[in-house]
Amino acid sequence: MTSLPLISFDAVSVDFAGRTALRDVSIVLHQRRIGVIGSNGSGKSTFARMLNGLVSATSGTVRVHDLDAARQAKQLSRKVGFVFSNPDAQIVMPTVAEDVAFSLRGRGLSRTEVDDRVASTLQTYGMSDHADAPAHSLSGGQKQLLALCAILIGRPDLVVADEPTALLDAANTRRIGNHLLDDLEQQLVLVTHDLRLAARCDVVLRFDEGRLVESGDPTSVIERYEREHA
């Protein structure tokens, strides 16, 4: 395995308003595709949000690709692209092209550079025809593709997707899943309830009640998870 940058959690706990969301999590990850499963409220979303500094640890340290998540949150949010479940919540600008271009704000790029990168990113994901369309006029699947374009244009080193297919139909789930699992070159952390997507990862972590209860080969982790919840 080529040496991908590391994600490491060292004795990490997170408390929210008197409730423990994550309890003493320690793990080192170097795989390309990392699946995260667990029931609602198990702590997997909190785990994902720590990877780009949206949530910080109450105790313990998180390191992502040589950055300390607590102290270097600003650099981290540039290196990490985050896909949420609800595309409506991540689209901030009126048209498709404007929203994708928004990700390049404040990077000191010229107007033409921005336009070129927007055009080529939209091209890659088959969204060129919609460049000037109002973002809200897209279908759910197209909106999630737009969200993906908006993230990948920033050339992140790590893509974190928190249940990116939760609101999509079967065809769009497959499409977004393929983009994330097959087409990406970057490291991917995929939080999902779709066990078929999780099975295609290189490693799967399972969370339960804020604890990391298991990690390893996807087939065996998923099998035990299904047996316990049968």
Binding site: F82, A89, V92, F102
Partner: peptide, 16 residues
Amino acid sequence: KHSDDLADALTARGAG
């Protein structure tokens, strides 16, 4: 609630 989600997305996109 939508506003909170938007704020998260803005922060995640490095715009915060």
